[in-house]
């Protein structure tokens, strides 16, 4: 079973990470990325994570993907990210 490595340190409790309609993505190399203003997780698997944003969806594909942290409005994803794609909210 693989073990996730933290790449980002998200702000501690009390900080509103929800940026409203504007989502914000930070990526450090191809091993970790943080997505702010996330509404929820639509789909999860070690190879594919679909995040629900305000008016769209973000599809992250890769391998050994893990959600290291998932606080209000922000999700921290680690693993080998191969691609990211935006799709319209259905």
């Amino acid at each position: 079973m693989m073990k996730a490595k933290k790449r980002f340190i998200l702000p501690k409790g009390g900080t509103d990470l929800d940026l409203g309609a504007d989502f914000y993505i930070e990526m450090r190399g191809k091993k970790s990325l943080a997505v702010y203003s996330c509404r929820g997780i639509a789909e999860y698997s070690p190879q594919r994570i679909v995040l629900r944003l305000f008016s769209s969806k973000l599809c992250i594909t890769g391998s050994d993907l893990l959600c290291d942290s998932y606080t209000n409005g922000a999700v921290l994803v680690s693993g080998a990210v191969a691609s990211m794609a935006f799709t319209e909210e259905e």
């Binding site: 996730a4 789909e43 999860y44 698997s45 893990l66 290291d68 998932y70 606080t71 209000n72």
Partner: peptide, 28 residues
């Protein structure tokens, strides 16, 4: 693993802190 997204959404919705998330292909 099929319930992973719902489980993570529960943690996000109710602000449940966790650490050391792991997956073995069948379970999370």
């Amino acid at each position: 693993l099929s319930c992973a997204a719902d489980l993570l959404n529960v943690c996000m919705q109710y602000r449940y802190a966790y650490r050391d998330m792991k997956t073995d292909g069948e379970h999370v």
